[in-house]
Write a protein that binds this DNA or RNA. Structure first.
Lengths: 194, 194
DNA sequence: GTCTATAATCGGATAGAC
DNA sequence: GTCTATCCGATTATAGAC
């Protein structure tokens, strides 16, 4: 941890982002000081400014790269039956959310701390992700496998429901991930009338 | 707004709580200064300390009284059929959440900024509210009106889904409240296998 | 109950040496 | 790339007058 001097950009860069993500998620963006991040990384506060122009850009980078990673990680199978696609989406969303719990939490909590420009960019990425699910639901209705009153609302409702696992899931709890995903898939299937 | 002096405790007290709730919800607890709250109320910063021992107690009071109000507002009808009780709960939760959007947002976002003692008290209140829904679900299963794999998980999933409306609902939007509640009731009914 | 003034600390960000 | 030192403004909370 403690260290005197020397250049190690390759490891410090990712470390800064990782510690910032962890601290922002646990205490909130505004409550975390640059000095605190620096201490967690093992450098002095001034050194952080070699990696980010300011604190705001650090937050925006974390949120944007999270959304980009989320979109990149999802691979659809448009030819598959809509119900199978929905099941894959449910499992994917739960797994990804639990694997990136800090970033997910940040993405919900700290949007309000972004400048309008940064907010708009990240909200657009979120919209693209929501469109993924909405498209699946519309295909399910079109093919008669789902009964849905409003595809847009159902999209938002399902994503909120699935993301909610990050609020209570703990490693080694009563239910393992597969079982949780199975239960949530049952809820989602019922909600879309299948 | 601007004012020089004089005692007006009866109106200042609620005003402090109201402005603090609004500002905390919009910018986050840590990002809001006591000076900012004071300015919104129309007093100087020092005057706030006649109403709260410190900033932390102000937050804890807001969250606790919100949970107390939520619990007090719900009136069950234990003799009614479980499905009817669930529908009432869905509508109640959406209405109450939209009527107290700032407090709901706060209750989700700022738990991490509470001291452990304050956190424990408020988490217990939340648990009592969750138990309300869980009991309805168990009654529904017992009476054969619902098919549920795990009542506890389904409780958390439904509450997360319903509370999610606060993230996107805007007065005067595409759908009015009744229509939204109707759609969510359809989703919830399907999720519990009814 | 509210004001003004202030104590004591901490915040983000920068400059210049190495 | 990192450190030390520092600028300067903002922060919470308190003291004492009214």
């Amino acid at each position: 941890m403690a260290r005197t001097s020397g250049s190690r950009a390759e490891i410090t860069g990712p470390l800064v982002r990782g510690e910032a993500r962890r601290l922002f998620a646990r205490q909130g963006y505004a409550a975390v000081s640059m000095r605190q991040i620096a201490a967690a990384v093992g450098v002095q506060a001034g050194a952080l400014y070699a990696y980010t122009p300011d604190k705001q850009a650090l937050l925006a980078d974390l949120l944007e790269s999270h959304m980009q990673e989320l979109l990149a990680a999802w691979t659809d199978a448009p030819e598959a039956p809509p119900l199978a696609r929905l099941e894959r989406f449910v499992r994917f969303h739960i797994d990804f959310s639990l694997d990136h719990a800090d970033a997910v939490f940040l993405s919900y909590m700290e949007l309000r701390n972004l400048t309008p420009e940064n907010f708009a960019r990240i909200a657009a990425l979120r919209g693209r992700y929501e469109a993924v699910l909405e498209q699946i639901l519309r295909a399910g209705v079109a093919e008669g496998q789902m009964r849905i009153e409003d595809a847009k609302l159902t999209t938002l409702a399902l994503i909120a429901m699935l993301t909610g696992v990050t609020n209570w899931y703990r490693e080694g709890g009563r239910l393992d991930r597969d079982r949780i995903a199975q239960i949530y898939w049952g809820l989602a299937r019922g909600a879309v009338g299948a």
